[in-house]
Every structure is written in C-alpha cells, then in structure tokens.
Design a protein around this nucleic acid. Structure first.
Lengths: 356, 356
DNA sequence: GTGAAAGCGCTAACAC
DNA sequence: GTGTTAGCGCTTTCAC
C-alpha cells in the first residue's frame, strides 16, 4: 500500500508537506503545492494508515461500547444509536458483549485500552465499578449507561440513565390504580443499579397506597451466564409460571424488560392463564416488539435515542477535555406506555386479596 | 504508561529480551532472566501497547463483521457467535451496522482496512460485491455470510450460507404437504442472494406439486432504509394484511425471517384472522423468540453457531495464508422446525381454491 | 512555505 | 542467550 512517502515522491514534495495537507494545515500553503499533493493522493489511491496515525498521535477517535447481550434487541438498538451518535462526531465504535460478567468486562476494557481506545461506555452497569479502577488509573474513561453515578464514584466519568426508581413507580402506580394489590416482580439477578432502582420504585409506589410488596413475589432467575440476558424470554416464562403457581399468586407482574415480558406471555399461556384477564404484565424498555406482540405490551419506555446521544457526547467531551463543569450524570425521564397487557384484576373479592 | 523500555530498565535487560519474553521466544532463555522480566512486568502493571504492536507487525488480529441491523436478534446472535469463535482464535471483532447500504458498507470497509483490519465478514450479502473490488485490490479479504459464492466471484475469499433454495423448498414442501395451494411470500426487497434463493426454493417446491407461485402473492416491503431490517416486524404486519386483503388471498405465507413472521402475527390479528386457522405462517432463522411467541412459530432453522464458526475459521485461515486448497464455499443445511403456526388450510373446497 | 530529522513502542535481524 | 540496531508510517518541532 502506498505510503505518505510515495505521495511525496510523486508530488515532488516532502512527506511533511503531504502530512500538512492531510491535516488541514494548508492555510498559508501555496495553492499549487497543495493541488499537486492532492493530485498525487488521488493518483495513488492513497489512504493514510490509520494505525500509524493513531500510534503516533496516541489518540484514535474510537470509543468502546460494552453491552450485556445483543440477543436483546434493546441493546442492539442502543448499539445502533450509539454508533450513529459517534459517527456524527467522527468517532468509531467497537462493540463488545460482556454478558455482565465483571471478569469479561475487565478483559474487554483492557483490550480496548491496549488498542488505544480511551473511552468506553458500559451499557448495563454493575453496582460497583471497582473492578475497573486499575484501568481508570491507567487512563480509561468510563461512561455508564443505565446507572446513576454515586457521589463518591471516582471511576465513572459520566453517566446517563433513566430514573429507574421513577420507572418502577410509574409501573406500580399504574397497576395499583387498576386495583392490583398483589404485584410480582420478575427479573434476572437484581445486581445492577437499574434493576435495584426499578424494584425500589415499585415498592415505593405500592407503599404509597398502603400496600406491601411481598418478597415471595420477587422472582430472580439465574441464567447460565449468571445474568440471564440471552435467556430473557425463557426466564420470564419460568418466572411467571412459578409466581402463578404460588398459593396466593399475584394479579399483576412487572418484568425487568420487555423480553422477559414476552417470555411471560408464553408462561401464562402454558398455564392457561390469560393476559390481562388473569394477570397483568408491565415491561420495561419499549422495544419495537412491544407494540407487535399480543396483547400489545404496557411498558415503561426508555428514551433510547436521546440517551445514547447524551452518553456519547458526554464521553467524547470528557475525552477531549471540553467537559468542564458539565453535569456528570444526566437523568432521562421514563414514560409509561399503556397498551393492552394491563387491566383491573378479574376478582377483586378473591378471599386471598381480602375485601376492599 | 509504562513502555517496554521501562520494563527493560527495571529488569536490567534490554528491550528485545522483554520482547522475547512477551512473544514466547523464551525456550533457550535463562529461567532467571525470564523471571526477572516477568517480575518487572508485574511490578509496573505493564501491558504491551497493542497499537504499536499492530503498527509494527502490520497485522492486528482483528476482524470486522458487518451486519445489516442489530435490531433483529438473529444478527445479534450471529455477532455473539462470531465474537466467540474469533476470541477462541485470539482475534477481536469490530462490529458495524451497515443497513445493507452498499455505500455504508464501502465506507465501513474502508475504515476497517485503514485501521489495519484485513478480514471482514459481510453477514448479509448483496447480489454483487463489485462495490468492494477496489478494496480487495488493496488487500481487504472478504468473507460472505448468507451467500453462495459464484464461480467467477473474485472478490469473495470464502463464504458460508445455508442452502437458501433448499430452505425455501423445505418451507414449500411442508405447506404443500398440508394442502396449501395458494402460498404467499413476504419479504423486504428481494435483492440479496439469500432472499432470491429462498423465493426460488419455494417456487420450485410448489412447481414440483404442479402449483404455481402467484407473483401477486410475492410481497416486497421497502423500509425507510431501503431494506427493511429495523422495521421487520412492521413490514411483516403490513405485508400479511395486504395479502389477506386480496381477492384471492393465500392460505399460507412464508416470511423472509422470523421477525417478519412475528409482525405477520400482529397483521393477521389486525384483520381478525387466526393463525394457523385462517393462515399458516413459516418463518426463517429460528431465533429464540420463535419458540416463545404464540402460536409457536414453524420456521426454517439456520445452524447459526456452526456457520459463524465456519466463517470465522475460514476467514482467519485465508488471512494467515493457511487456507490452501480449502473449499471457498461452505454450505450448511437448513432444517425445518415444525411448531404450531402451520396447519392444513381450513377450507379446502373454498371456491377460489378449486376442488381437489 | 517547505523540508530535514527525530521519535512514538515495538519487533526482528543480526551481532556478539 | 542477550543486546544492538534499524526501521514500520506518520506527526511534529525546528531549521531554512
């Protein structure tokens, strides 16, 4: 492949002149020289060796995005949005699947850092980022998606999330408003800040109505990988079956995301239970599929596109040192999208529910 | 960040000795020297600068994967499998979303090549790769997923696909065997080799039974992006509604993938048509969701994991020059998974179907 | 305005 | 066995 020297030779100039043209330092350059260089570049079909550029400059206009699992279209959509936002700023994106495994996360982050990627967005954030602190000390800049930074958190440079607690509240208020008193929660391990927040929000909404969230109705599936993303629908299916089989089953459930909810549909059908007749279901995310399944899913929407843009922009500002004084955390507002999977409980005088 | 020289200094050796340790050339090295080097590495928390390594060696053990859209979990699953296969061989993967847009594909391929990535897997292959020929001349190695290489195809180094025509045939035979005579086909633009193949297979299966595929029943949706991936479910929904509204509607449809099929479920419901009572549906891919939706989807499975592995291994063999004599194309066998979305047509003596 | 030269961190001949 | 040396392709002072 042609190098900068080939271009220089063909144009009859030196390599540094070519470099100057390439890097836009041609203000006070003779138009003629510049034209010759450009012609030579054209003629040779020359592209600068990006590797060499990065190597030399130390920067490489690439950010990393670590997602738990691209099997959930929500993360796929996020990846897409992040890529668009990054491209708009002249950055590229390296995607990695880390399955929420801290070890894998660390390994990927190390690899990225070693490849010259300084900024990485972690898209489903563990409760702690301690496992990354040795990398941030070496220059890694961490952006957290799906998490609210805690004050003392030195590891995370910026973060974006919906107010997960509010999201849980919205779901809870909606169900309580419909008359539900026994509400279940179906999730993978509740070990990420978003999961904890959503559960807390639900609990708070119920408390406000004088209801208690029965801990027996909080179902946590453990996937093969430990966090049950790939298996979301499968876990939702099992979870709802188990909850419906309890002595005193819930009349509604909130699931940790839409894929769990869709699996929940299957689980309810397995037992001959109808949605929303026998059980109401609220999801999280509002993936495209939520409007397509039957019954259309009531869910808490995350404003994904805006969040992705915010995260990318904040991260890049930090990388470029132009983030002075900016808020380290941006909170987006979730929105309840009411569709057809929620309705008043069928039997409000059921002995176990108690008379109103 | 610590460099190889820092390590050398601390260990009291030269940089090349450190390099030798790093690169496993320590067979006839004094155990003591090696130990000192390792201790120094440990002490400094040294990681080789991968950028510099790549830059120097020209190779970077990274491959690219260009997918049409991560909004379809099938591609997400593929990405995951590719990543696993690549990791097992010590390679990393750079993912890109190209929306099946040849221009975007070209741009990404250029970027990848400029970043030192020589091998790229194109995961949903256009009918022609001509737009990439200038890049292959500059050293890009193209692997095609989802496409059968044509003899004269010089651009593609290796390819993997299911036998799409056989896939279409399996779907067709199944439906014909159930007694269907009017079968529709729902797809985005039929401009990729896999889509053409599937349609041809369906047509062939029908022809074998003395049936003709009515061109009016071949529905091609055009998405915003032109290829309708992101909008798969939405297009499936519209497609089935349009086909069911024909004067002489089909009693079964084959959709280009499972996401279209799931959208088709919604479309049928929109019109009050039941599946499989009023219309049978066959998908393609067998994504996880296929078993979860109701009714469980009959579909043509692609053996994804094996295909991803094959593609990655073949590509890497070509990159490393150890592919002598290997078959440039590997064909995987699709498999019909019969579930609950297909059944005999309800009214086999319907006037429009003609008496049997 | 343009060119010469040094060097980023690493690898790989080739000395020793 | 280990060290010396010469670059990889580019950017960037700093002369001229």
């Amino acid at each position: 492949m042609a190098s900068i020297h080939d271009v220089a030779r063909v144009a009859g100039v030196s390599a540094s002149t070519v470099s100057n043209v390439l890097n836009g330092r041609h203000e006070r350059m003779q138009a003629e020289t510049k034209a010759r260089v450009l012609r030579a570049i054209e003629e040779l079909g020359y592209t600068p060796n990006a590797l060499a550029q990065q190597f030399k400059s130390g920067r490489n206009r690439t950010i990393g995005l670590i997602v738990p699992s691209v099997a959930n279209p929500f993360w796929g959509a996020l990846a897409h949005r992040v890529e668009r936002a990054a491209t708009a700023l002249g950055y590229k994106v390296l995607f990695c699947n880390a399955e929420r495994d801290p070890q894998l996360e660390t390994r990927y982050a190390e690899t990225l850092l070693a490849s010259g990627v300084r900024g990485v967005i972690f898209s489903s954030s563990p409760l702690s980022f301690d496992h990354l602190s040795h990398l941030t000390r070496r220059g890694l800049v961490v952006a957290a998606f799906d998490r609210r930074g805690h004050g003392a958190e030195e590891v995370v440079a910026c973060s974006v999330s919906i107010d997960n607690e509010l999201g849980g509240k919205l779901a809870g208020q909606h169900l309580v408003g419909l008359g539900h008193r026994r509400i279940g929660f179906i999730s993978g391990p509740i070990k990420t800040s978003s999961r904890v927040g959503r559960l807390n929000g639900l609990r708070a909404a119920m408390a406000k109505a004088g209801l208690e969230l029965d801990p027996d109705l909080v179902w946590q599936g453990a996937g093969i990988g430990g966090y049950g993303d790939t298996e979301g629908p499968e876990l939702g299916r099992i979870g709802i079956r188990e909850l419906l089989s309890r002595d005193d089953p819930p009349t509604a459930v909130v699931t940790i995301n839409d894929m769990y909810a869709i699996g929940g549909y299957a689980g309810a059908r397995d037992l001959g239970a109808s949605i929303p007749g026998d059980i109401s279901v609220v999801g999280f995310d509002d993936i495209d599929l939520a409007a397509v399944v039957h019954p259309a899913l009531t869910t808490v929407r995350q404003p994904l596109a805006a969040m992705a843009e915010t995260a990318v922009q904040a991260l890049i500002r930090v990388l470029e040192g132009t983030n002075e004084g900016a808020e380290p955390h941006v909170s987006a507002t979730p929105q309840l999208i009411v569709r057809a999977s929620t309705a008043p409980p069928r039997d409000r005088t059921h002995p176990n529910n108690g008379a109103r």
